[in-house]
Design a protein around this nucleic acid. Sequence first.
DNA 1: TTGTATGCGTTATCAT
DNA 2: ATGATAACGCATACAA
Lengths: 389, 389
Amino acid sequence: MARTSDRAQRAGHAGVSIEDVAAAAGVSTATVSRAVRGLPRVSPATREKILAVAETMGYVASSSASGLATGRTKTIGVLAPFVSRWFFSKAIEGADRELHARQYNLSLFNLGGHGSNRERLFSKTMVYKQIDALLVLCMALTHDEIEHLQKIDIPLVVVGGHVEECPYIGIDDYAAASTAVRHLIELGHRDIALLHGDDETDLNFDVPRVRIRAFKDLMAEAGLDARPEWDERGDFTVPSGQAAFKRLWNRPGPKPSAIFCASDEMAMGVIFEANRAGVRVPEDLSVIGIDDHDFSEAIGLTTVGQRPDEQAELGTKMLLDELDGNAGAVRSTIAPHRLIVRGTTAPPRAAGTSARAAATRAAGTSARAAATRAAGTRDLRGSPAPQAS
Amino acid sequence: MARTSDRAQRAGHAGVSIEDVAAAAGVSTATVSRAVRGLPRVSPATREKILAVAETMGYVASSSASGLATGRTKTIGVLAPFVSRWFFSKAIEGADRELHARQYNLSLFNLGGHGSNRERLFSKTMVYKQIDALLVLCMALTHDEIEHLQKIDIPLVVVGGHVEECPYIGIDDYAAASTAVRHLIELGHRDIALLHGDDETDLNFDVPRVRIRAFKDLMAEAGLDARPEWDERGDFTVPSGQAAFKRLWNRPGPKPSAIFCASDEMAMGVIFEANRAGVRVPEDLSVIGIDDHDFSEAIGLTTVGQRPDEQAELGTKMLLDELDGNAGAVRSTIAPHRLIVRGTTAPPRAAGTSARAAATRAAGTSARAAATRAAGTRDLRGSPAPQAS
DNA sequence: TTGTATGCGTTATCAT
DNA sequence: ATGATAACGCATACAA
């Protein structure tokens, strides 16, 4: 009723409204709405005037109001199990690029580990009705959670890990792991250890298992023995790589001449600990990882690289296209990976073409410097890997 | 007008509304609202019934609608120049903890570096009217940007970097840097190089400069020479640390026996490159950083640690308390830092108590293993540092 | 091209 | 304790 006094009261509350602008510009709110959103049906003259007024008044639309009116929040959610690990922080970065370029907001949901605030996130007020689409980062999800997500009925895509019935973007883990193992085998290694990342929970997360399978398949194919005592488990982190190396080297018996790590961080852990134990890389032990972590080049780590940022960016683009009415824009896609040979892999000492290894050992004093290198100086940049299946 | 058909049409649109629940429960929307929010004025009986109905119907309030009604979005914004660097990803993690524990959402705004999409973020529809408060992470801000932020008039706090006129949470950079340099000096080093992170833009970001000042003050205090040719500039990243080491060692003339790096990542770059060049750490070169990066323990890096996650968590808590009506909850606070002595620092070879250094050199074969270590094995866990000013 | 009117789903005020 | 009902600020058919 007391329209005027209401308005006056509100004034200090949430800034200038579209009505204020309309009044100041001498037009209706409808016209202002069209003008500020760049819609067609408004004359150049009035548009200019409105824009000017809006600018000076510092008008910016209330997202709540327009969200309520349109039914869209203009923000997409990003679900991540961690944010400070390489894959995830890179993916978030990539999603953000695409999002903000298209005027969307990024709402981050960190499901630290397994327990805690998970349920709340899925079942309660969060996630749901706050976002227009959801980008899931390489998560181990329970069946209930998956069901929940699908019931929400918004565009959804998962990056970096398979989830049943959900569109997926990521590298071909089997092919990537195979590429790494093949590199080792071709170098002449026969005694190859495996450092995988399977935590054997019942969660839906088969990335580790696929990499394990690739390892075993290739070993078998080459007629090599995948010794159970060289089968180590980690959790994709540096400390778990360190621990694995220690277990491997403290155990009596023969040592592997190479180790395939399911992630670069674990590979780094192995390398750091090997250095500390006086085991030379790659002379005594070749190490290869998967990822191409930010630090890998500096360390000289040979790896099979992938680009989580680009994967997430692509996933986000699909989501946004879908929201733009482009039905079917979200489609499972295999992202590229490529072998990047650097300094942590070399032929085994005892093996076939031991020329280089022998030379290194025989080089006397200078060998010391060579051995000191956490990473070799060779830097043969990665040749593109065969893109499998 | 045709109310019923409207409702039918809407049905598939955005899920079940409060009105649907009210109807199903045989009460008014007002009561439902109170019930689901746990507000007082509703009888236990009806509350229980409403909650049950809401549960089975899968009701969840529209954030847009309640945002419009209350004027609060229940989300706070986090402004970061990077998301995949240690400090920031950790800080985001910390903010997220507190936020989601208190039912708030986290909206991430990544302002990549200096140029690019900065303006859009500040002046346009983003940030503003989408969030209830803002957490700024260690940003280099222009004066215009600062002004802009303050005009928005929402609770604001910056973590990890000073911004004029803004409440601030972070370590005492001067004290932290002093602690690091003092450690080196007390070890007997006289030839100390500096690797700082100042990019000398005109932006408001004095963290690097404060650390530089601390270095120079302490050197002067100890009567030591801060040689200009040992004053290197980096950008807090590993590669910049590598580059700095190379410049230092490629230059003719005497070499420093220790180097103080303004970040752990730069320190790692130095270490990796030193290994590659056959310069032994800490025998030939002591290295100390600031941060206590996730990888620092594995590498054995001596450093002055800080906890960005806790800093951000505290900042977030303050913001939320302020929003909860607790005026004055946001206050500048100094966060703790502590010296963590690990394996990359030791007395200089030529210096006073050269017992250990000499022993290492004389150890023959075993010295080789020692030299191989990217990091020493000593792992004296950090004694708490004197908390300065 | 521009304006009018109504709906969006909640919250909050004021009765009852 | 519960129920009408008026905002909230914007978008959008529909009318002009």
